[in-house]
Nucleic acid binder design. Structure first.
Length: 155
DNA sequence: GCCAACGTTGGC
DNA sequence: GCCAACGTTGGC
């Protein structure tokens, strides 16, 4: 099956999309909610993430990509939490605010709104495409993404 | 296994 | 900084 889409939240003064751009990659750790953890575990390499700034900004500011499957969260030894390695894909040309999402009829069912306080929520392909469009953002051509291309062309 | 207390998240 | 929503914990 094709790639899946999710939205992940971070408080920008804790970990911002700008910081991810600088870091080039990070482990998405610190998730301490079972449902959010299970969403992390549902991710696989190549899945795309909308990066949302909570509290400050309250807007989708960029797109990130899952670099590999979920692994144990080393920040909670002995506990059953997970992290996922992610890398930045591109910033949104126009950040998409929570208000804009609320006011968009095509996004009335989005899990971000329905499941208010979940820090990792699934996004449908249609919702993902619509938010990119609202952000006037196109995904870059991914030449380095040879594994995905090989998988796609072998189908 | 119910439910009250508590803690956390996140919008305002 | 307040408060509402809601998930988690712990007593019974």
């Amino acid at each position: 099956m094709g790639r899946k889409y999710f939205l992940v939240k971070s408080e920008p003064d804790k970990y911002s999309f700008a910081k991810l751009l600088r870091d080039k990659k990070t482990l998405w750790d610190g998730v301490r909610n079972f449902e959010a953890r299970n969403n992390l575990r549902a991710m696989k390499q190549g899945d795309l993430l909308l990066f949302y700034h909570s509290n400050i900004g309250k807007e989708v500011v960029g797109v990130a990509r899952v670099m590999g499957p979920a692994i144990a969260d080393a920040t909670a030894p002995g506990e059953d939490w997970s992290v996922v390695p992610v890398e930045p894909v591109c910033p949104m040309k126009n950040p998409v605010s929570l208000d804009a999402i609320r006011n968009e009829p095509g996004l009335s069912e989005i899990a971000l709104l329905k499941r208010n306080r979940l820090s990792v929520v699934p996004v449908t392909p249609a919702e993902f495409a619509l938010i990119l469009k609202m952000g006037k953002t196109a995904l870059p051509r991914v030449g380095k993404d040879s594994a995905d291309h090989a998988a796609a062309s072998s189908r």
